[in-house]
Nucleic acid binder design. Structure first.
Lengths: 251, 251
DNA sequence: CGATTCGTTGACATGCTTCAAACTTCGTGG
DNA sequence: CCACGAAGTTTGAAGCATGTCAACGAATCG
């Protein structure tokens, strides 16, 4: 039985909180009162608990403080479609219907700490447009996923995912060359539209090519440029910087 | 050589404009002045012209008045990925980067009339949240596409597209049973992640099943329930109503 | 009327899924 | 602490859906 993540609040000061790379959410709050309120809104909880489920009423969005989150839908015939993974610093939970209901479910992939941003603190115009620009960021990620699903083969999809994770970890101050996959092969498959077996086989193949090393959930990227070439990723500003500093100048 | 759609403004009064089903954009403008300004912002233009291209500066979004629009990206290796099709009443052009640049390109599929909504008219809080809810609608469509690309076979994808179009035409007061595909097989393929040949073959197959009749771009849906069953579409509010009134009670 | 674009159909190649089985890791309870 | 079962991962073999290549017919346009 899964309990709601809201059950055991853990209080922290905002200024001690630093998802490396900065808290996107904080940019949305310009009044000191709002920030103060926010300090009471940190929650931490364990693997496999839901932050929210599709259809629930939504009065807030979230920022990942540490850990990781999986966003997903359940199809008509009970299958899962993963929409994305959120890492520290990422905003999630913006996708609500006009009636303020959740359009997707969000579940913890590991022990995770998140921040709650009630919509009530955001009644200010500037914040509305900031929200919109975060929503736009989300859309861009979505577009990338569509592109991947529509045009790439298994190698390209896996390479894309790993390149994306590397890039995002790097932009937050973590290593781009070695990290842990917090999601299962199953999750990866549901995200990329591949069977688990294909995910496993593809990782093995990339390893044989010398592009990376995999052991269960541990990944080490040996050839960033090669990986990116296989991925055929469209560039964005973060990726460009990542590329210049990491891909082209091996660490 | 493609000229910009902004070249030949055609002026109309807002009150004479009625994409059947209503103009979503109008809900965003509550001041009479804004509406007045808007009346000068209608444009009409011909097939294959661009409304905007990826990377251009964005100071407005659009509503389709009549005709249809294709939104797309170009991949690294020059291939096209169609993101969606917009029909009369639809809002498009909301997906801009934080730096207010277009994240995708939009091109006319036929002779089309659109309305321009400059961002300058929307500096008001209530409108910010209205925009966000339209963005959310867009996200929901995106989610459906991802789901389709990741989980459905060719039959399911084509059935989904047709069911979606039928539903959207119906909700705007047009026939849900017979309509024209304004996009080419190529466009459909780029949207659904299928080869042109597969699109063609699948349409033929659906015809042989007696679900529909196709002749070039003319489509007649003979068995709405069957089509929807093949599509395995996730329900949304419009679709539910469409389902009750059209699918379950054959026209 | 020819040239071009678009749509359809066939034959073949291939990459992914499915089915099956073995192995590892982890949690639980004896 | 070990035994056991469940869940996650890997690997192999076979089937199939879709992509690719090629040719042809139909519509459109100048």
């Amino acid at each position: 039985m899964l309990s709601q993540i809201h059950s055991h609040p853990v209080l922290h000061e905002c200024h001690t909180c630093e998802p490396r790379g900065g808290c996107l959410g904080l940019q949305l709050l310009n009044s000191p009162e709002a920030r103060q309120q926010l300090c009471n809104a940190k929650k931490i909880s364990c693997k496999a608990e839901h932050v929210f489920r599709e259809g629930e009423d939504a009065d807030c969005f979230y920022v990942v403080r540490s850990g990781s989150i999986k966003s997903y839908l359940v199809t008509q015939d009970g299958e899962e479609q993963v929409l994305g993974f959120y890492l520290p610093g990422d905003v999630f939970g913006l996708d609500t219907t006009a009636a303020q209901q959740r359009m997707s479910s969000a579940i913890l992939l590991e022990t995770t700490s998140i921040c709650r941003f009630p919509h009530a603190y955001l009644t200010d115009m500037a914040q509305g447009s900031a929200l919109l620009s975060i929503a736009a960021e989300q859309m861009q990620r979505d577009h990338n996923l569509m592109l991947m699903l529509a045009r790439k083969d298994a190698d390209g999809r896996i390479a894309s995912l790993l390149d994306d994770l590397a890039c995002r970890y790097w932009s937050r101050g973590y290593s781009a060359s070695a990290f842990l996959l917090t999601m299962s092969r199953q999750d990866i498959g549901c995200y990329l539209g591949l069977a688990v077996e294909t995910v496993s086989r593809t990782l093995t193949r990339l390893q044989e090519c010398g592009v990376l090393k995999v052991n269960r959930r541990e990944v080490e990227i040996l050839d960033h440029a090669g990986l990116r070439k296989m991925a055929g990723t469209r560039v964005n500003s973060v990726a460009v910087e990542y590329c210049q500093k990491v891909v082209l100048r091996p660490v």
